[in-house]
């Protein structure tokens, strides 16, 4: 069994080790005095050690949290440091948004490439007199399940002449208003949802000949949207990492450049 002095020395040693967890300046100011206070308490036979130890442990936990939080609050209360941190956080946010937005736009633009080609070629062939049924592939495409492009041809009034697109066993038609827009502007690029869970990237091209008409080419966007989700997650993780680095860097820099404490004392 430990003699009291050996036990006291062990407690002092443990307490001295725990003092390392206090902020540097607090430790520099009060570590010796705190150890002396503990020594005085341990030597006071009027206080039962069984009562002192829980008080000491609870006090250590509470004051460690409080003093370290006070240092963090002091660091972020320094306006120059806070300003720098906010600027860096804003730059990180802009960068992360850009890293999401740019690939998203590239993916969206690329998503239309096959449809642009299909609709363009079909419109030219229609203008040269090819019949609509010959231009549309014979195999129908289930637009809810397949990633393959599909094509549909409409007359000038928007009535379907031929289509390779099927959804739930039926042919699909784009929103009615797009025909008028495509007639006026030559083409319309649109994303629409023929069913709640099916989104289609498509191009509707007006046929410029005496008969008129429209060519619709589209494809399911689920793969594109999955890639967009992935870029969003990657940009989000990158943003969190950058904000974390800014916060930790600011804390470390703030810790290293803390102004010295000056307390009034009576001479």
């Amino acid at each position: 069994m430990n003699t009291p002095s050996t036990l006291h020395r062990s407690i002092e040693k443990l307490y001295a080790s725990a003092l390392c967890l206090y902020p540097m300046q607090f430790r520099a100011c009060y570590a010796e005095a705190m150890l002396q206070t503990l020594r005085d308490a341990l030597e006071d036979s009027a206080i039962p050690k069984a009562r002192l130890m829980p008080t000491l442990l609870l006090d250590l936990i509470q004051s460690l949290i409080k003093e370290n939080l006070a240092v963090i609050a002091d660091i972020f209360a320094r306006s120059a440091l806070l300003f720098n941190a906010l600027i860096l956080a804003a730059l990180s946010t802009v960068l992360a948004l850009g890293l999401h937005w740019i690939p998203q736009q590239v993916l969206r633009m690329n998503a239309n490439d096959p449809q642009v080609e299909l609709a363009g070629n079909a419109a030219v062939r229609l203008e040269h007199g090819a019949p609509a049924r010959e231009l549309v592939p014979a195999d129908s495409v289930d637009i809810a399940a397949s990633l393959s492009p599909f094509m549909a041809i409409y007359d000038e009034q928007g009535k379907m002449l031929a289509s390779s697109a099927q959804l739930d066993g039926k042919a699909v038609a784009p929103p009615a208003g797009v025909f008028a827009y495509a007639r006026q502007h030559g083409e319309e690029r649109l994303t629409w949802a023929p069913r709640g869970d099916v989104r289609i990237a498509s191009i509707l091209r007006h046929v410029d000949d005496a008969n008129g008409g429209f060519v619709l080419a589209g494809r399911n966007m689920c793969e594109i949207e999955a890639r967009e989700d992935l870029t969003l997650k990657m940009a989000g993780l990158l943003w969190l990492a950058m904000i974390g680095i800014v916060a930790v860097g600011t804390l470390i820099f703030g810790w290293m450049t803390q102004p010295p404490k000056a307390h009034p004392s009576v001479a």
Binding site: F26, Y30, M34, T37, L56, D59, L60, S63, K66, A70
Partner: peptide, 10 residues
């Protein structure tokens, strides 16, 4: 304990 005491004194 000493932590609360010196933190409060500070």
């Amino acid at each position: 304990g000493p932590g609360t005491l010196y933190g409060t004194l500070e």
